[in-house]
């Protein structure tokens, strides 16, 4: 039976609108090692993995993280063990959660995106979805340089869609762009099934002692509660301006600074069909359980459901 929390992203029916956010979700072991992992898994609608690339990536040199006011800057650089080891080591563990698994993919060229998607779908036929990362600010090539180029976005989505088969295609967009709806429309033109927004905002920190930038790459990605209004605004804009989003033919997954159940409701009202929570999870690993409780209370108190809330703030 469908509960009040149930939602839908394209063809994918989710029992809860709460998803892990790529980059902050680890692979499989980390969640399992936590004491309350069963309750967390029960609160999740789907599991979004950390970004996977074709070849293993070492990631950026340290330091990789610094706290800011109400947020944090990170420059991890997509450290991961590559698609081959992901399929052999992590995938069997992820399946044990009995959750839809969405794999975040990242690549340097358009062709690599296609190859990566093909290998994932061939190696893991029951993969629920692929989230195309065209927005990572922390890698030299690809990443955000694709994310600001509508032509490239459309090409990548089209390339990934071909081998993806039944897997849902989600395009993760960057906020480091003048008008996010341009990128969103490009992804829709390429045939994406859903959009997720936002990735981190570019930010810089400078070390007073060395009087040099703190991060080797100078700019890093800002996340955390500080960016919530930005993410919320971008979800709002896409829902308001793009008919496909408004009709939910191309649903939006809201990301950006979500730290409380109230933030989740705000994103739903602004037009997100589901949300991803990242940074807040570091601070409080029981966050999904707390959010689920808060959502249930709000939905019961207002006699409504998640499906009814999506985009409700746009009525006037």
């Amino acid at each position: 039976m469908e509960t009040k929390l149930a939602t839908q992203v394209g063809r994918l029916r989710l029992r809860s609108p709460l998803l892990t956010a790529s980059g902050t979700s680890g692979s499989a072991d980390e969640l399992a090692g936590l004491g309350g992992s069963q309750a967390t898994v029960a609160a999740l609608g789907a599991f979004v993995t950390k970004g996977v690339t074709l070849a293993p990536r070492q990631g950026n040199p340290e330091p990789r993280i610094i706290e800011t006011r109400a947020g944090l800057l990170n420059s991890i650089g997509l450290q991961n063990k590559g698609v081959a080891r992901f399929l052999s080591e992590d995938w069997p563990k992820l399946r044990q959660y009995k959750l839809p698994v969405i794999v975040n993919i990242s690549a340097n060229t358009v062709e690599e995106y296609g190859e990566l998607a093909g290998r994932l779908v061939a190696g893991a036929p029951d993969i629920a979805g692929l989230e195309i990362n065209v927005s990572c600010p922390n890698i030299k090539e690809g990443g955000v340089s694709f994310g600001v180029d509508p032509v490239a976005i459309e090409k990548i989505v089209r390339t990934v869609k071909r081998p993806a088969g039944r897997a849902l295609i989600i395009t993760k967009l960057t906020p480091n762009i003048t008008d996010i709806t341009v990128a969103a429309e490009a992804a829709i033109a390429g045939g994406t099934d859903a959009l997720s927004m936002i990735n981190t905002l570019r930010g810089v920190a400078i070390d007073l002692r060395t009087q040099r930038p703190y991060f080797a790459n100078v700019a890093a990605g800002l996340s955390g509660p500080a960016v919530k209004p930005v993410g919320l605004c971008m979800v709002w804009d896409c829902f308001a301006k793009i008919p496909e989003c408004r009709s939910r033919r191309v649903p939006i997954i809201g990301i950006g600074g979500i730290s409380t159940w109230q933030d989740v409701i705000e994103y739903l009202l602004a037009g997100a069909s589901a949300v991803q929570v990242g940074t807040a999870w570091f601070v409080y690993p029981d966050i999904f359980v707390e959010m689920k409780k808060g959502l249930e209370r709000y939905l019961a108190g207002n006699r409504t459901t998640v499906r009814q809330l999506v985009g409700r703030a746009h009525r006037w």
């Binding site: 902050t24 070492q58 993280i65 450290q79 570091f282 690993p285």
Partner: peptide
């Protein structure tokens, strides 16, 4: 000791470069 984000292994922030027995390097 390193600056840490999460502490339980998901954020890959507190890395140290290590050299394995086979000579390969990794964080």
């Amino acid at each position: 000791e390193k600056r840490m984000g999460c502490g339980f292994g998901v954020c890959f922030s507190c890395v140290q470069k290590v050299r394995h027995a086979d000579g390969s390097e990794d964080y």
